[in-house]
Design a protein around this nucleic acid. Structure first.
Lengths: 178, 178
DNA sequence: ATAATATGTCAATAATATTGACTTAATTTT
DNA sequence: AAAATTAAGTCAATATTATTGACATATTAT
């Protein structure tokens, strides 16, 4: 039993076979995410897009007028990596940008109608999958699911994610600097 | 409200703002998996390995004497993709293979002592993260978490995952054909 | 003897990502 | 007013991960 397991077991909250529980969690997470992310691939490929495009479209859709820096912070990728995908989405009319009136260095990103439609189709499929799991499991399971996922997020990012969920429809500080 | 949302809402199990709930679930899953998978990168880079190497080492470690075909089914990648990684792991002494006495076409894969040690280091960090989230949340939340993750997995794969978890320490049928 | 299976290999290709340097424009600081 | 900092764009090289499709050998099943 490793030190962390001993520490956790001593806390009296986890069943025996702690390591086995951890490994099953790791695997459930892997299998769920594998199937969850794989689902949208067919739609994406009709546009010659990939999962990176999906993530960009999704988070721009969720955060109208998001800045480039903020998007980089959410996705945790580099500028060049984003530029490749963002450039294609702008060129093909899914994303639009404008300068921030308050600070003209900044670009504010948004989805076009075409992008909104793509986002809707992609998210609809994934939402259906989640909704199906939620429906079967019930409210208590949902609370637990959310709580544990939140607990898996890097500790320093949790408050940002909390704020992200309670933002008033504008770009909030998620994983970004003050 | 889409048809599925209406259907789910009609079932009376989900709160109002169903679409918002789905999107928050999507985002929690994204943030959790992003941070969960990112954690091992530092260790991996000291071996010039990546996440694909990690997954291969992990699932071979969990399934001693797994066949190539079975590993492909679990990971849902192509032979060439696995060959690139598997070849490196074999060449550098983390993985070993032997022929199956019962069917000499088959290769049985296993971790060497070196591979076991790498797996232990990688899994220890991820287990600690999961254990921390579990400890805070408690047993009911854990049950819910597992149930919903299971519900997110492709329906046709769930029974395989269930069997995977109850296998008697040997290679079981996970996402593989009968 | 033939067909099917397990696996390996090859080549081409595509998607996604990092690093690091350099640039322009705008804002902030001194 | 000048200098420093910031936001973003661009470029090139490189690395990682993946798919497709064809062909091969060895082994097992029919």
């Amino acid at each position: 039993m490793t030190e962390i397991e001993k520490s956790v077991a001593d806390a009296g909250h986890l069943s025996k076979g702690c390591e086995e529980d951890m490994r099953q969690a790791i695997e459930l997470l892997f299998f769920a995410y594998r199937d969850f992310t794989g689902e949208a691939d067919a739609i994406l490929s009709t546009f010659s897009f990939g999962r990176a495009h999906h993530r960009v479209v999704y988070f721009i859709g969720r955060n109208p007028e998001i800045t480039v820096t903020r998007l980089l912070a959410i996705l945790k990728i580099t500028k060049q990596s984003l530029a490749r995908v963002l450039g294609q989405l702008i060129d093909e009319g899914f994303v639009e940008q404008k300068t921030d009136a308050g600070d003209r260095r900044r670009r504010l990103l948004g989805l076009t109608q075409k992008g909104i439609e793509l986002d809707r189709r992609l998210t609809e499929r994934q939402s259906r999958r989640i909704a199906g799991a939620y429906q079967v499991a019930g409210q208590h399971a949902i609370e637990g699911f959310r709580q544990i996922l939140r607990g898996i997020i890097n500790e320093e990012d949790r408050v940002h994610v909390d704020n992200y969920f309670t933002r008033p429809g504008t770009d909030t500080d998620v994983n970004g600097p003050r």
